[in-house]
């Protein structure tokens, strides 16, 4: 009798937990349609992890650099762990997370996020954090990122946050409940359309142009972690014309790079050298590169990685050739699909 009672309790618990698990799977956003950026962080875990170069940062990395070009032109095996408005502490914890799986020769960090010293917006936090596999790095990233209105438990049990999605469910929510589709090309977000840059607004006056203490703390941690692991950290500022990059910010990054013996490249100063044409190479008026711009930028950066940083050319490795052959095919297919879509 007692045994039967226990069996009932266990079965009931399994049924309840199973139902909640399925509901959570169904209700969580799938990021496969219009807004795909929320899927980038999780995609990394499907990869074979022996990259020589890993990019971390916000949209200025995942929209401006193409790992496909780096492979095709220089045989560089790279991956972008980027997400929308990725804050510097999120970049740091993503770096920690990445190092659980591999130790690349080079880590590239885009410095725009130094402008943020405190948590910003839950929606972006979710896109940067939810895709991470559970580890202490994820826990710390949540703790560092939460706005005053967020709760840690909502990240542990996302159903608490997404239960209101029931009225917005689409076919995709069922279709991709357990297995999602690839939406990036090694973390690169492709856009082939063109919207020329026009007049760019000047920056608002700021009371204090000094980057915040919290932002510097995480940059220091990133620098220290890379040094400890024997990784070369490269700082970059992508050639995005907006948000405004102040001269005072530039001076601080240059000084930091000098003090810490880091390579820093500000592509805003190299637009002509790279050959970027803001009437052709951007899809949103200068905020991000389109495919043409990203390939030009990758061509230029690949040369530095290859010649100055001595990142190896691995194009002769048969195993990698196979992997990249498939990736290039997917890249070309999406390129054609987008050209067709945007030429209509």
């Amino acid at each position: 009798m007692k045994k039967k009672r226990w069996l009932t309790i266990v079965l009931t618990a399994i049924l309840i937990l199973g139902s909640l698990f399925l509901l959570q799977k169904l209700l969580m956003p799938k990021y496969v349609a219009d807004v795909v950026e929320g899927a980038f962080i999780a995609e990394y875990y499907q990869e074979e992890k022996n990259h020589d170069v890993v990019f971390i940062g916000d949209c200025e990395v995942y929209e401006n650099f193409s790992p496909i070009t780096l492979w095709q032109e220089y045989g560089i095996n790279s991956y972008i762990r980027g997400s929308a408005q990725q804050l510097i502490w999120q970049s740091y914890y993503l770096l920690e997370d990445t190092l659980r799986y591999e130790t690349p020769q080079v880590v590239v960090f885009n410095v725009l996020s130094m402008k943020y010293n405190e948590p910003q917006k839950e929606a972006y936090n979710r896109m940067s954090i939810e895709g991470m596999k559970w580890s202490m790095s994820k826990v710390k990233s949540i703790q560092a990122s939460m706005t005053s209105r967020e709760n840690f438990l909502d990240y542990v049990f996302p159903i608490l946050r997404y239960h209101s999605r029931w009225s917005q469910l689409t076919e995709d929510d069922l279709k991709y409940m357990f297995q999602t589709k690839q939406v990036s090309h090694n973390g690169y977000y492709m856009r082939v359309d063109v919207k020329a840059a026009g007049e760019i607004p000047e920056g608002k006056p700021l009371a204090d142009y000094q980057f915040g203490e919290n932002a510097y703390t995480y940059l220091d941690k990133m620098t220290a972690l890379c040094k400890e692991k024997g990784i070369q950290l490269i700082l970059i500022k992508a050639p995005s014309l907006y948000p405004y990059w102040y001269d005072e910010w530039e001076a601080q990054i240059e000084q930091y790079a000098e003090d810490n013996d880091l390579l820093y490249i500000n592509y805003l100063e190299l637009v002509d050298e790279v050959g970027i044409d803001f009437t052709q190479d951007t899809y949103d008026a200068g905020l991000h590169m389109n495919l043409s711009g990203a390939e030009k930028l990758s061509h230029s950066f690949g040369q530095i990685l290859s010649e100055e940083v001595q990142v190896p050319n691995r194009s002769g490795e048969a195993h990698l050739q196979e992997i990249w052959k498939e990736k290039i095919a997917a890249y070309e297919a999406e390129k054609q699909e987008q050209f067709t879509k945007y030429s209509k």
Partner: peptide
């Protein structure tokens, strides 16, 4: 609340 529009939050 966190509203979800399409697949965004």
């Amino acid at each position: 609340a966190v509203n979800v529009q399409g697949s965004s939050v």
